[in-house]
Design a protein around this nucleic acid. Structure first.
Lengths: 341, 341
DNA sequence: ACTTCGTGAGCAATCGTTTGTCCATTGATC
DNA sequence: GATCAATGGACAAACGATTGCTCACGAAGT
């Protein structure tokens, strides 16, 4: 394996016959440049000829800035998180930052996970989207030595949060089902008590009320965000009488579980049961029938969180807080008008 | 946002009333320690009392080791890559390394992508799994200033590669279909010319020959690794006469595309057509019918690549090269014996 | 003609660790 | 009792870049 010789600032300085400090000033294009144009050209040329790349460690030590963001996610095999990561990665790279990834798989670890990056001066800031309850997260982050932005929820006691408007999401989804003619609409809720779950339930109820439909508590079943949870919750809803004619899932994976249960129970979709869910992920196209979804700005959330964090770091803003709106229903084949009578 | 005061080595040294160098030696548990036990205890206690964490930048500058690995992947919304990433992340964290992620989405950029991390002394090594052709990749990496390991293929001219044994994978899958009684087996190939694609085709042919079946070139259709590709290729195979009774896909996504095409063409699965694919990803359970797959050690590949790279960095080995074997067929409901007659 | 000012560029300190070298103390050896 | 070795720990020099300060020089003002 051929190892290339690393070019240092001093090498460039020698080649341009100037002091290293001058090279530094030129390459960093500082405000008060105070460097002659011909000297500048000589330096720029030397740097590019030699292929100079500044040593991030040395620079980081001196400036206490790493141009690296930490991103903590609980799962990598869940497209919801990877979409956010894609958005965050693109935004970070576009602004010259790198992304250090940390999997927070074990919630019992709690704190320490964030410190490892932050207190070691490895990252300038943290992007956090994990599964801990608000208070645990707050406690874990209160010892962080860097700014952070929490993604995918509004956490109490945490200033910088970028979340999806799941109230609007559930409301618009429910409205869509109502517009197709459905009156008994089941909800495969995520978690009954967390931020996103409660917002969704509220949105679902609001849409029902607006349509003059009395919400039936029996039609809300907790499914979590897994295939098995969706399967179980869908079976529970099938046993409710009168049986609902449509189901609204919190996420694609639980909707897939519901579809599996419906196939197993020989309930035809969409003839006998319409199914739709939040989050327009690729998997929606692979399901049978292809799943109607509400498109949510997941990439955008990652992008905004990363951009906001960088703004925070560069003192371009004091706080990052955003609630992102749904991008409309993507009608596929899993929804239809309910069968008459 | 409360910002915690950062504790430095010198703070620990003062608290323990010793020199910073002594603290450093104690905390790094060097071979020739030469530090008295009571001094050692005092230092260890002071460090933990103060919550000392070494500054990664300073350490990196001094030692020219960052304890960070770069990982380059082309997509984050493809479970094949995220599985590898999960394995790599776990292995790296277990050995005290961090992972810096880079999305290589634009292949035309070519080189420069790797240099950004390596030449800037940001990473000690690179884990690479991108979509460039071998020669482009080799060219891009030949200027890398750090060791690297290529994942998911054997690239010509690159010493350190960890790949899956796709010859064995296709062979075992085909054997499984043959064992169910199939004689006309279509292959939704990935790419006809790349490493994995050619290995698969060879394995498929080998299994057919071993079963005394003459390979029919018309039964091999290039599908790539996408939903649409699988859809198109499956439709092509349906037009072949005599029609195959089974299809073997290179990956789950193209198999999903095939299932979609088969539903659209009202071909019953598995009654009229068996479908199976390589890579046992969660999506297999969401398809209808649930997809029979061959389990491949994707996590393991990430783990082995990361562990191998770290071994390389720590001079525990001279080369990393591995070919990982399939972990058996996961029979679900998309395969069955062919219809008689 | 002499001071003053501005400009361009070099000098040197610094960021927090690590690590080679050196010094002091102690105990052991003859 | 003097020499010597071994031990424990401090000193100081790096690592490569950034940045406040100084300085030399020439032009401009009195």
């Amino acid at each position: 394996m051929l190892i290339k010789k690393i070019v240092k600032l001093i090498d460039v300085a020698r080649a341009a016959r100037v002091d290293a400090s001058t090279v530094s000033r030129v390459l960093n294009k500082q405000a008060g440049q105070r460097v002659g144009p011909e000297t500048r050209d000589r330096i720029v040329k030397a740097a590019s000829d030699l292929g100079y790349a500044p040593n991030a460690m040395a620079r980081g030590l001196r400036t206490a800035r790493t141009f690296t963001l930490g991103i903590a996610v609980p799962q990598l095999d869940n497209p919801v998180f990877t979409q956010m990561m894609i958005g965050a990665t693109r935004a970070a790279h576009a602004r010259g930052y790198e992304l250090l990834i940390t999997l927070v798989e074990d919630l019992t670890v709690g704190s320490g996970v964030y410190d490892r990056l932050a207190n070691a001066h490895r990252v300038d800031g943290l992007l956090v989207s994990t599964l801990e309850p608000d208070d645990v997260l707050r406690k874990a982050l209160e010892h962080a030595s860097v700014p952070y932005v929490v993604m995918n929820r509004k956490a109490r006691g945490i200033a910088n949060c970028v979340a999806l408007d799941n109230f609007a999401a559930a409301k618009q989804s429910t409205e869509y089902l109502v517009s197709l003619g459905h009156r008994r609409i089941g909800h495969l809720a995520g978690l009954l008590t967390d931020y996103n779950g409660t917002r969704r339930i509220a949105g679902y109820r609001a849409a029902l009320k607006a349509a003059g439909i009395a919400p039936d508590p029996a039609l809300v079943a907790e499914a979590g965000y897994t295939l098995e949870g969706g399967d179980r919750a869908a079976r529970a809803l099938l046993r409710v009488t009168p049986r609902p004619t449509a189901m609204l899932a919190a996420t694609v994976l639980s909707a897939a579980g519901a579809l599996r249960a419906l196939h197993a129970e020989r309930v035809r979709v969409p003839a006998e049961m319409s199914v739709m869910s939040t989050n327009d992920l690729q998997i929606a196209d692979t399901l049978h029938p292809p799943l109607t979804t509400l498109r949510m700005p997941l990439l955008e959330m990652g992008r905004i969180a990363a951009d906001g964090l960088i703004d925070l770091l560069e003192s371009k803003t004091r706080a990052v807080t955003d609630l992102l709106h749904p991008n409309g229903v993507v009608a596929r084949e899993s929804t239809a008008a309910p069968r008459l009578g």
